[in-house]
Design a protein around this nucleic acid. Structure first.
Lengths: 157, 157
DNA sequence: GCTTGACCTCAAGTCGACTCGAAGTCGTAG
DNA sequence: CTACGACTTCGAGTCGACTTGAGGTCAAGC
């Protein structure tokens, strides 16, 4: 077994060493051992990191990703959870698609000002409506406490 | 002109008053005046807020959105910037689409473990590759300093 | 044996977009 | 006229995912 030192894992994974230590702290990876103070990783850490990257890319938090590994270290992924995340992605996709089309249109729209373009105005109403719906505006006037924003950041490419 | 107080704007926009104040601090909106200490808003603030919501939905930061308003208050949106953002959204969409398909597949994949499913493994390689490419791994070994992660959070629905 | 420099730990800082709490002001209903 | 409560300001706190810096350890090369 050739053990990898942190620099090697960093080089091969593209992640800085500080991130690897942070991931370890978060229970996402673990070194197979140490030489003195220095961490030694097995080659499988790279697959694990790919799995983490995959999860992050799909919008999972590090905490959620950590929960996807069984204590024995093997990925134990809940299929229902995957399906749910796929559905969430679908919703995001629909929203972003509409947004892209709107932007695309606005970019070439002949109206002198965006505010005079019907398409743009429609987009505007939609964006405003999403917000109002989320807070229950004009119904209760006050969102139930503790009901924090469920949206989670997804990172662009 | 009927002036709206902050509670009314909050109600109609679905945003908490604290957010409206914060937006003002960030130069996104401004009250038309005050009655005593209290802010009074014109009706146009709602359109403005819709514009802000739109921008946020498209992945712009508040800073960028603020820059989209000319000093006179009218939206002065750079069409090239819109097109660029639309392209960025397109890339994000492609990535998320692949991710969704992968998740969907993994959720129904008959392989006993995800690691034995070719589709899942392919997805894994892709996710790992993105990361490695971003940091220039295996080429320079070190990303040029100051070149911070350009990805920006997009919020799900 | 000594130096070098890659690694270590731990605490603190960063960023964006808000939210919260304390303490103060003020218009209006009674 | 007073009390109430909706507003105000300002500073600090939160969250997630890291990064940075100070100060310490240690294996390997000279």
């Amino acid at each position: 077994m050739k053990a990898l030192d942190i620099a090697e894992v960093a080089r091969r994974s593209g992640l800085p060493a500080s991130t690897l230590r942070y991931y370890e702290e978060q229970g996402l990876i673990a070194p197979v051992g140490r030489r003195g103070l220095r961490r030694l990783y097995g080659a499988d850490v790279l697959e694990r990191l790919a799995l983490v990257a995959l999860g992050r890319s799909a919008g999972f938090s590090l905490r959620e990703i950590a929960a996807m590994f069984a204590p024995d270290g093997r990925p134990r992924i809940d299929r229902a959870q995957l399906a749910a995340r796929a559905d969430a992605l679908d919703r995001t996709l629909r929203r972003l698609r509409a947004m892209r089309d709107g932007l695309r249109h606005a970019a070439v729209c002949p109206a002198p000002s965006h505010m005079e373009c019907p398409t743009f105005r429609r987009l505007l109403r939609v964006a405003g409506a999403v917000q109002a719906r989320r807070s229950g505006a004009a119904r209760a006037g006050r969102a139930p406490p503790g009901r924090r924003d469920a949206r989670r950041p997804i990172r662009e490419t």
